[in-house]
């Protein structure tokens, strides 16, 4: 059973939960009918193309047509499956998320990335998708999947793949506090030579071993990074290695390297079954667990 709690936007009684599930399952069943139809069409077209292509070797004069038909057939056959995938992300997932008190935008058109730049490596291309936002335990949450790459269209290297998100933080700061995974001696040398931000050295040895902290105010950095917050970040880093965090105003921005595709669906082999929802909710769980691990809903500003 998934652990996602019913948020304040949704009802918490089990009766409503059941009717909500029933509504979602009905949507999924409609989609499954379409998926089966499109799959049959794709298999039929791909097999026909292969038969046509192979058969052309036995009949003279149809060589060039065989190549065209044999090449375009599979593309035409697979195309509806891709369209179905987009349709699924644009229609089904938003409805599921809405039922659980969250909003979802596949294209992530409203996700601003500029604020995350201090946390991210240098990149030339970016792709942001699967934007989820809403409130969890009264804490504002906004997360999206981000993939950054570098290089030419022919030779691209992925420099970051994972989640980026905003969380409401119980404290406000005028300075910008950047917390990155420690780069060791090489990082210290780079800081000394090129970094414009002041490095902050904190008292917690374990935290210092795992993270490098930058802020233009030593006091503001310590105001945000209390011993309790440092302990919580250590716990989070153990779960998500490579964690990067930025605190500004009343927000905590987070970047989590993660190779997994969020809300991924493989339509060719996987039936659209109710258990897909559980898989989605597990993905949502992973995001919301950050609020719980960091105890962002706590009223005490410690």
């Amino acid at each position: 059973m998934h652990k996602v709690p019913i948020t304040e936007n949704g009802a918490s009684n089990s009766e409503y939960g059941t009717s909500r599930r029933r509504h979602i399952y009905k949507l999924l069943n409609e989609f499954e009918v379409r998926r089966k139809k499109y799959s049959r069409f794709a298999v039929w077209l791909v097999c026909s193309s292969i038969v046509f292509f192979v058969g052309s070797f036995f009949f003279r004069g149809v060589g060039e047509y065989a190549v065209i038909v044999g090449g375009t057939g599979p593309v035409i056959g697979i195309m509806p499956m891709f369209l179905l995938r987009i349709d699924f992300k644009e229609k089904i997932i938003p409805q599921v998320m809405r039922e659980y008190g969250f909003r979802y935008d596949f294209g992530a058109t409203d996700m601003p990335l500029d604020d995350f730049l201090p946390l991210l490596p240098v990149f030339s291309d970016w792709d942001v998708s699967d934007h989820i936002w809403g409130r969890h335990k009264s804490v504002r949450v906004s997360m999206a999947k981000l993939k950054l790459s570098m290089g030419t269209p022919r030779a691209k290297i992925t420099v970051f793949s994972g989640l980026v998100g905003y969380f409401q933080f119980p404290k406000t700061t005028k300075s910008r506090v950047v917390v990155k995974s420690s780069a060791g001696v090489a990082g210290d040398l780079t800081d000394a030579l090129v970094s414009s931000n002041q490095r902050v050295r904190l008292e917690d040895q374990e935290f210092e071993r795992r993270f490098d902290v930058y802020c233009d105010s030593q006091v503001d950095a310590r105001y945000i990074l209390t011993p309790t917050t440092m302990q919580r970040l250590i716990v989070l880093e153990a779960i998500h290695p490579g964690l990067r965090v930025l605190f500004q105003n009343d927000e905590m921005l987070i970047a989590l390297p993660n190779e997994r595709d969020l809300f991924a669906v493989n339509f060719f082999f996987t039936p659209i079954a109710p258990n897909l929802i559980d898989a989605f909710l597990e993905d949502l769980d992973q995001i919301l667990a950050l609020v719980d691990t960091l105890k962002l809903d706590a009223k005490t500003k410690i």
Partner: peptide, 17 residues
């Protein structure tokens, strides 16, 4: 007062360090 106390505690940690 709570905010100032938080900043005093932060300044105290910086100062003591």
């Amino acid at each position: 007062y709570e905010e100032v106390e938080g900043h005093v505690a932060a300044a105290r940690r910086f100062y003591n360090s």
